[in-house]
Write a protein that binds this DNA or RNA. Structure first.
Lengths: 221, 221
DNA sequence: AGTTATTGTGAGAACTTTGTGATAGATTTC
DNA sequence: GAAATCTATCACAAAGTTCTCACAATAACT
């Protein structure tokens, strides 16, 4: 029975949603703010999904999400009142897996929870065994000839991008869009720097990241 | 000017988005449901991207997407209201290239459209299997007898030009117009130099690029 | 064969693009 | 809140590309 942690300050919602979810065969723990949610999680490692209201006293949903994402890729769904739906993009950029606006129906809620759980099963612990080395995406660690090398966050994203798009040339701007986000407007040459550091982390495999002069970079499989 | 087909039943959105996109130098055709979208596409082959609202009368966005994907890889972006219980993953599993939830900002929309268009250009770029060799256009690489030879940007363009126009003689100026661009005013003999280097890259296949004395060059298939 | 027009070719200057180390500012960690 | 780490940008070095020119080679024509 999947276990869901639900953080919500309004008692009415807490009770209602708990019933909704229990009828759908979920195990539900409710807490009334973000602080309590984090406290619960620090002692318990068996939660399958977190439902986070955005507006809460003490620590709000956004901060909980941001904080959790530093160390975990546990599925998170954010809940918000329609009035602050302008925050949607923010919420997703925080790393939430889905976003539901209040009020929602029982069926919507359950369908989306199931969907996120299914999706995250695949996403979690996605590791790469490439020709000569291993890349543990979640840990952000490379294993090359038995040695473990840890990568910085940007290096992780960039390597993942290359490995998901092998043999395909991408311009610096395309890479910025995909890795940094489409709303990032920085110097395209920043990509060069990160390619450089990634190459050096990869050691002899650094050569796999090819330069397509005048057009961009690609990973050669 | 890229052409976008926008299917949306709500008139308010139709008008607003049309204006958004036109200010960003897109050519926009709006239709009010999925059926009309398919009808339009059956007569027109010049659409660069399709924006599909999910909820529409007659044929909805999901079905349009599913139907189009059987025969085409034209870029598709799905739009949905947050309240829709239908969700992101379903949309993407249908084969859509991106997914934007309403309400969205003008900048978000345009950034993501540009991103999808660029990404798809890359995906759709073709490779060439010519009689004796292979040309991977996106990587700018030739494979001849198992050896990979990389080309310079101009060589890539020139070879692509020849392969797209086999057995057809072009003067130096026509080649300059097509490969270098209409606004390039340089010495036509520059073409000779590039033909020379392309021939040498092609090795034994260099002979396929023929000189039509007094008239120009052509690729013999 | 001699003359002329056209193309092939090698060298190199001018230019463009990429690699790299330093550095300052952000961010995270302790 | 200090220290460590990470990120973005810059400036300059290094590498690669493009274009032009001069001359050699070739073809066409008389």
């Amino acid at each position: 029975m999947p276990k869901i942690l639900y953080a919500e300050d309004q008692e009415r919602y807490r009770k209602l949603v708990k019933v909704f979810l229990e009828t759908a065969k979920f195990d539900v723990i409710t807490v009334e703010d973000g602080e309590k949610a984090l406290e619960y999680l620090s002692h318990n490692n068996d939660v399958d999904l977190i439902l986070l209201d955005i507006m809460m006293p003490n620590i709000d949903g956004k901060d909980v999400c941001k904080y959790l994402r530093k160390t975990s890729d546990i599925p998170i769904i954010m809940l918000t009142a329609l009035a602050d739906s302008s925050n949607e993009v923010d919420g997703l950029n925080l790393g939430a897996d889905d976003y539901i606006s209040k009020p929602f129906s029982r069926d919507t809620l359950i369908a989306r929870i199931n969907c996120v759980i299914r999706r995250c099963e695949n996403k979690r612990s996605k590791n790469y065994h490439v020709n000569g080395f291993e890349f543990f995406k979640n840990k952000g660690v490379l294993r090359i000839e038995g040695k473990e090398i840890s990568l910085t966050p940007k290096e992780i994203l960039l390597l993942e991008f290359f490995l998901n798009n092998k043999d395909c040339v991408f311009s610096r701007n395309q890479i910025l869009d995909s890795v940094w986000g489409f709303d990032y407007y920085g110097n395209p040459r920043t990509v060069d720097t990160h390619v450089k550091s990634l190459r050096s982390r990869l050691g002899e495999f650094g050569q796999r990241i090819k330069t397509a002069r005048g057009r961009g970079y690609y990973y050669q499989s």
